[in-house]
Write a protein that binds this DNA or RNA. Structure first.
Length: 163
DNA sequence: ATCAGGTCTCAAG
DNA sequence: CTTGAGACCTGAT
């Protein structure tokens, strides 16, 4: 049996597919890439309106700020990496190795932390690339997800015709 | 204790 | 240029 998929409280279509949004109480708990709208209907909540709003704005302008009350859940190491990633400016990228340097960690460990990112876009995992290329995304080394990564980086102006 | 992973690096063909 | 092995650290079983 596959693990029970997390439920989403709202769905927002996007140029690269769509985004699922889930909240816990009055905080955003997860934002993920979805290819189709989740079966469960969306609920009504002011926070969801706010999230949709900010995400839509980001689609138009990559510099739009994403400022939302967030609900973090992860190991200390993961949280540390995520916070670090949030400091990568729009339009630039870091390699897994670069991120790993600080805590004397390793590139693979960073990849692992990225893979478990449940706040896509807010934690810009898409700005972390491999030393020799685009690198994987959301657990895939090729296919749909890396294409989304490409879209996002291009949207942010971080690709100079490469990859 | 063991293994797999969104990698890196270096050495050899 | 391409391939392969070993090394790195974390998280899950």
């Amino acid at each position: 049996m596959m693990p029970e998929p997390r439920s989403f409280d709202a769905y927002l279509p996007a140029p690269f597919g769509g985004l699922g949004i889930g909240i816990e109480g009055d905080r955003v708990a997860r934002i993920s890439f979805l290819s189709t709208a989740p079966p469960s209907g969306s609920i009504s909540h002011p926070l969801l309106d706010q999230v949709r709003d900010q995400l839509r704005r980001y689609m138009e302008d990559p510099h739009a700020r994403l400022q939302l009350p967030l609900h973090w859940q992860g190991t200390p190491f993961q949280q540390r990496v995520w916070q670090e990633l949030r400091r990568i400016p729009v339009g630039s990228t870091r390699t897994y190795g670069e991120i790993a340097k600080r805590p004397n960690s390793s590139a693979r460990a960073v990849g692992g932390a990225c893979r478990t990112n449940h706040l896509v876009l807010i934690v810009p995992c898409h700005r972390v690339v491999a030393a020799g290329g685009l690198g994987g995304f959301s657990g895939e080394t090729e296919g749909v997800m890396p294409n989304i990564k490409r879209w996002l980086l291009n949207h942010e102006g971080a690709l100079n015709g490469e990859w």
